[in-house]
Design a protein around this nucleic acid. Sequence first.
RNA 1: GGUCUCGUCGUCUAGUGGUCUAGGACGUCUGGUUCUCAUCCAGAAAAUCGCGGGUUCGACUCCCGCCGAGAUCACCA
Length: 481
Amino acid sequence: MKEVITRFAPSPTGYIHIGNVRSAIYPYLIAKQDNGKFILRIEDTDRERYVEGATDLIEDTLKWLGLDWDEGPIVGGEHGPYFQSERLPIYHEWVKKLISSGRAYADPTPPEKIDEYRKKCNTEKIPFLYRDFRPENLDFTFREGTPIRFLSDPKEREWTDAVMGKMKAGPEVQDDIILIKKDGYPTYNFAHIIDDALMGVTHVMRGVEYLSSTPNYLALYEAFGLDTPTLVSLPHILAPTGNKKLGKRDGAKSATEYRDDGVLPEAMLNYLACLGWNDGTEQEIYTKEELIERFSLDRIQSSGARYDETKLLWMNGQWIRKIFDEQGARALYDRTTNFWPKVASDYSEEYRLSVLSIVYDRLKVLSDLTEMTEYFFKDPEIDTDMIKNNKFLKKLSETDLESLLKISISKLSDIEDWNPDTLQETLNWLLAETGRKPAELFSLIRIAISFAPFSPALNLTLGALGKEVSLARLNAAARSL
RNA sequence: GGUCUCGUCGUCUAGUGGUCUAGGACGUCUGGUUCUCAUCCAGAAAAUCGCGGGUUCGACUCCCGCCGAGAUCACCA
């Protein structure tokens, strides 16, 4: 058995949105499972749609997700170059082979003429096939500036798709496809076949939209005498609404946007891998290593799967907690660098770490940190309405509130070893002494020190804030009443 | 229009003829965890398995037809 070699072959036409990264994940997974190779190839044969910088975006995305490629841009490899635009001589050499065996011809027919043929077929309601309009005396010479077409041999074809199963197609879908465009660049249809063969690719994975053109690819493999790789059609990821595949028009974000919002690559990989695939167990959270071990082509769903950001976010929360619990606070902290509020930079790393340790379990995305932790780094703006309108506090009089705060301040001031445990003891004592319900006393203190809609457990929040800051804020709140 | 693909809770899915009065997860709702938010825990609602025929003692599972949705028919990939 040959080693598994797969590739991800995007076009540098802009950022790759999440609907497309799955077709990088799956090939990566099966290559690694087999200890094989994963290749990155840039299909930049459309010079009009080429976008400067798009290749960097693609590379960033793969790197972020941990999908390291064994061959391709940056890392090189024995089958390069990995940009199709640098492989023109190769395509020309191969197309010449086809021409000399009489299976490809130069076609000078202008596009306008072809459009005419097409329109004619449309009005007559018959399928348009270029081979029906093929010039009479075929020109079997390679010439610059003239498109080269494949001379098709339409017939019944059968093949197996790893996801879709047994497939067959009749001659009515096979045609004289363009191999080399007028500008000398190859078409996707032709280039990918040559590249995959030369690079030893064993599994071709791509979206289902290529299923219809597969018979043409089969004809090409046959004409070249090349082995057909295992073909794998990946169903579309559907937009949140409607039944169309997820695209940029639906606001599909790039993977890197999610990164910038504080989605962990582990969560993204996990979510996308399990969108349309499962291992048959009830497990939901998978590490990359587990995915590599468990992934199998035959369990890829054959129907499209809807993209559900809510579930991605849930999974991200799971991963945030998993990393904290299994790898420690420090490991999670290292991921949070870009997400703290600006003022946090005035504080020590140790302090930020202690804040993270008490808020991490309520983060959905790391960027929640920005708003969620502001009061740990900056005295909050006092908003007495927040106290007065609180559902537990609004029935208390101002004097009640004031005396509650006073006794709390004085008792808390007595704490010598300020830590969550001693704080809890004192809080409990205050509860007993004042006869107040936790809802009343705790709400008051919590609001007074944070003026935020929510905070971690009171003793933890006070503990992190420290004695000095906590008391100062309580005093300030008391004065404002 | 031709060709092809797909069709189980709102969503992702389990399910390969009886163990399915259809299981899990997200989301939703209800409780619990000394206040809040979140986590966590417990529980609830939620799918006549697209529809109609067959085959069979028995069908979500097999066959046929229909319907619905999508893809494709470029010198784009």
